[in-house]
Design a protein around this nucleic acid. Structure first.
Length: 414
RNA sequence: GCGAAUGUAGCUCAGUUGGUUAGAGCGCCUGACUGUGACUCAGGAGGUCGCCGGUUCGAUCCCGGUCAUUCGCCCCA
């Protein structure tokens, strides 16, 4: 077939998919608002610098997955691969340090040039929550608890587990990193090719390797807990206690890491095994060094992002859509009267389905197809008496009622 | 970026060990029922068998390439 196809890794959101997406967004938005997070939005593209500086030149996303292009005036522009960098840039651009803590929720499309798979696309959508300007562990607890409540409300909590770890402050991190590089450098011969690459770029990632040989080495590797200074250890302890207090279950995962130096302390992921290799549903952490890296004053921050496609695939409790009421004119004479009634009822807030053409049979079929709750039939007979035939499509019963009382009849359906 | 599998109607899939008009279910359209849906019955439309090339008298089927999807790796939401 040579029909036009969408660009690889992009998908159309047909109404049914769209409803699922909207449900995820609406649920997240509502719950975020309960915690005091206001909705915000930033541009879909930024200067390439914004992402290169925040995500790190050596990260996979920056080095090979960005949709970058030269704008007409020669500037390098990049379609956003994530939300955090743009929101932090916005924080600086708008002088929001005066409003600290800035608590925002956002959603929208992201772009990464990756190999598409189930739950992984080149244009995908994320919900995002950021709390900027709070260094307290209470902020970590809050941010995680918002995510937990959203997952619970979507009915996907039962399909996932919260994994959590600490990366410590930069002092703890640096000393651990040094120790790790030293340890693995002594065992280079036994490391997989992937991990040899990681040794330069991102040694902490080796802890997460799936290679059997690597895992044997990892088992003997120095433990992060031995390199955590007391502040970092106490901070993490407070976060865990806060989660315990709220009854949020978690697994301590000492291998959960983030590659870049801006990430500090808490790192967490709500992971599932239901989507193949794409396990992360909502993932985030603390990024106390990020705003500074963008050129702002040192400002702590913590947040997370969640994949809407992934969440939508697992969401189980979709609300039923509103069912329309069908208006069916019988014969040409009633056509204009029916149109007027449809307009009035829509004005009054009802969802009305009225076909553009067709005899009664066709229009009734159409009414049924769009899952109408009831049908209102108007013909010459009814008009003479200022009435209409009101048919309950679930019960299969119908009565004649005055046109005046149509609204009451519809209200009575609930 | 690497490895593997798959690709037949709008959807889910049969099928052809290479041979005239390629099938089913669902969906769609029409009618039985010109003032009544969901049920039933009868008809109908819709496919250059992903695309390009090769082998062959002949390819949807075999071979190569390509594109897309899926799975694993990498990475991540």
């Amino acid at each position: 077939m040579s029909l036009p196809q969408p660009v690889r890794g992009t998908h159309d959101l047909l109404p049914e998919d769209f409803r699922r997406h909207a449900h995820v967004i609406e649920t997240a938005r509502t719950i975020a608002a309960r915690f005091g997070y206001d909705e915000t939005s930033t541009p879909i593209f930024e200067f390439t610098e914004v992402f290169a500086r925040t995500m790190g030149e050596t990260s996979d996303v920056v080095s090979k997955e960005m949709y970058s292009f030269e704008s007409r005036n020669g500037e390098s522009i990049t379609l956003r691969p994530e939300y955090t960098a743009g929101i932090c840039r916005s924080f600086i651009s708008n002088g929001l340090q005066q409003n600290v803590p800035v608590k925002v929720f956002a959603n929208g499309p992201m772009f990464r040039y990756e190999r598409p798979q189930k739950g992984r696309q080149r244009q995908f959508h994320q919900i995002d929550l950021e709390c900027i300007g709070a260094a307290e562990a209470k902020a970590d607890i809050e941010v995680i608890s918002v995510a937990a409540m959203i997952l619970k409300s979507l009915g996907v909590m039962e399909h996932c587990r919260l994994q959590i770890n600490t990366l410590g402050d930069s002092e703890s991190r640096t000393s651990y990193r040094t120790a790790l590089v030293e340890y693995f450098s002594d065992h280079k011969d036994n490391l997989s090719q992937d991990s040899l690459n990681r040794l330069d770029r991102n040694p902490l990632r080796i802890l997460d390797s799936k290679d059997k040989g690597d895992q044997a080495l990892v088992a003997e590797a120095p433990l992060f807990s031995e390199y955590l200074n007391s502040y970092s250890a106490e901070f993490f302890d407070e976060v865990l206690k806060g989660l315990d207090l709220l009854g949020i279950e978690y697994d301590l995962n000492r291998r959960l890491v983030r590659g870049l130096d801006y990430y500090t302390h808490t790192a967490f992921e709500f992971v599932t095994t239901a989507l193949g290799a794409q396990g992360a549903l909502i993932a985030g952490g603390r990024y106390d060094g990020l705003i500074e890296a963008l050129g702002g004053k040192p400002t702590p921050g913590i947040g997370w992002a969640g994949g809407i496609e992934r969440l939508a695939m697992l969401a189980s409790n979709l609300p039923d859509g509103k069912r329309p009421i069908a208006i069916v004119p019988v014969g040409d004479v009633a056509e204009s009267e029916a149109s007027k009634l449809a307009y009035e009822l829509r004005q009054a807030g009802f969802s009305i389905e009225m076909a553009f053409k067709g005899n009664v049979g066709k229009r009734m079929k159409r009414a049924n197809k769009v899952n109408s709750r009831a049908a209102i039939l108007i013909g010459e007979d009814e008009l003479e008496r200022n009435c209409c035939t009101f048919r309950d499509l679930d019960e299969g019963t119908q009565t004649e009622i005055p046109l005046k009382s149509v609204k009451q009849a519809l209200d009575a359906l609930g």
